Amino acid sequence: MLQFQVAITLLAFIAASTFVLSKSGAAIVSYHIVFAIGIVPLILGAMVHFLPVLSRSKNPGKFIRLLPVIALFGGFLVTSYFAYQQALSAGRYVGATTIIIAVSILGVWAYRLKVNAIGKPHPCLDWYLAAMLCLFIAVGCIIMGYFIPEQRAALRILHIHFNTLGFIGITALGTLQVLLPTATQRSDPEVAARMRKHLKWVVAGIVITACGTAWHRNFAWIGVMLLAIPLFDILKTWLKLYSNAIFKVHGAVPLLVAALCGYSITLIIGLIHAYHQQNFSPVATFIIAFLIPLV
């Protein structure tokens, strides 16, 4: 199933690129092809694969393994709405509801794995739970916009931030810290303690950045500074432990570190966009600087 999700993600990137080149003004459709069809189901599929490992539990059942596919269907509906708004006027709400149901079931399953884990589960499981909560909030903002239309602009900003910096960012940052010791074949004895310490700063930073950008942008920089605390600590540790592997011209390690740097660049571009230069696109920066090295 995970191989299927990877193939869909690659096709989504190709389709989004083709759509941008062939049709002007289609950025929002392309973004949803990348995120709703490509990235979100892939991440959920990866979580289904890794969560039993993190909690030392048995493999998931068929229904749990189908949840990423259900989310993919929801992503198709949401994306189709932006491509054909008149024909599929309710598509985004039906699609958003479908994704919320899928991620809610997956979140409950993940929490039960944590509670019933043999021994203490890996802290990356908590990062995945936080990421799923961010996705729940992000998609929920779409539905909330129907009931409070006067807040749609702010809810759209929340939707973008909790999707990118939140769901995708938390998942990737947590996974990177677990994968890098494996990729370098050198252990990081402090990674578990560091992840437990950093999660609160990451979550607080994302919430303040998102809410500040949505309602009072002068507070957004506070969230970015909070996010900078774990990012700087992670990068400092990686340079100390894996500098030889990081500066190689090939292999997975330089790409993983490049993704971390790309996440940081996205935060900077986002601040510039909020305060000075509206022509900058934080979402495009996120895709190019953060997602592409990971993919």
Rank of each mutant, 00 (worst) to 15 (best):
S243G: 10
L231K: 01
P189L: 06
H198W: 10
L235A: 12
A210P: 13
M225S: 13
L227C: 06
A204C: 13
V203R: 05
A193G: 13
T184Q: 02
A245M: 15
Y242H: 06
W238I: 01
P230T: 05
A193E: 12
A259V: 08
N244C: 06
D188C: 04
W238N: 05
A245W: 08
A192N: 06
G251I: 04
D233Q: 11
C261K: 10
P254R: 00
I206H: 04
A214P: 09
H250C: 05
Q185E: 13
V207W: 08
A228E: 01
I222K: 06
S264W: 02
I234Y: 04
A245Q: 14
P230I: 03
V207E: 11
L241N: 07
F247S: 06
A259F: 05
K236I: 01
L227W: 03
R196V: 15
H198T: 02
V257N: 05
I229M: 11
A210V: 00
D188H: 08
P230H: 02
W215G: 15
K248H: 13
T237Q: 13
A259Y: 01
T213Q: 13
A204N: 11
G251P: 11
G205C: 03
K197A: 10
L235W: 10
T237I: 07
S264P: 03
P254C: 00
T184G: 03
P189H: 04
L231E: 01
L256C: 07
W201K: 00
V257F: 08
I222F: 07
A210Y: 04
G212F: 04
G205L: 04
L235Y: 11
M195F: 00
D188N: 13
A259C: 06
K248I: 14
C261A: 14
A220D: 06
W238D: 00
V191C: 04
T213I: 04
V191N: 05
F219P: 09
A193R: 08
E190N: 14
W215Q: 08
F247C: 05
V257E: 02
N244W: 07
F232S: 11
V202M: 09
K236R: 10
M195W: 00
Q185R: 14
G251V: 07
M225C: 15
M195I: 00
K236G: 04
W221L: 14
H198V: 03
T209F: 02
P189Q: 08
R186V: 12
Q185F: 14
V257T: 14
L260T: 01
M195Y: 01
F232T: 03
L226D: 05
K200E: 11
W221E: 14
F219I: 08
K248V: 14
I222C: 11
V191L: 08
R194G: 12
K197E: 15
R217S: 15
K248A: 07
L241H: 05
K200I: 15
R196Q: 15
L256H: 06
G251S: 01
A214H: 07
T213C: 11
M225F: 14
V191F: 02
R196L: 14
L199D: 04
L260C: 02
V249T: 15
S243I: 10
T184C: 08
S264N: 03
K248N: 12
V249D: 12
L239R: 15
V224G: 05
K248D: 13
V249M: 11
S264T: 09
S187A: 12
N244K: 10
T184H: 06
A210S: 07
L255N: 08
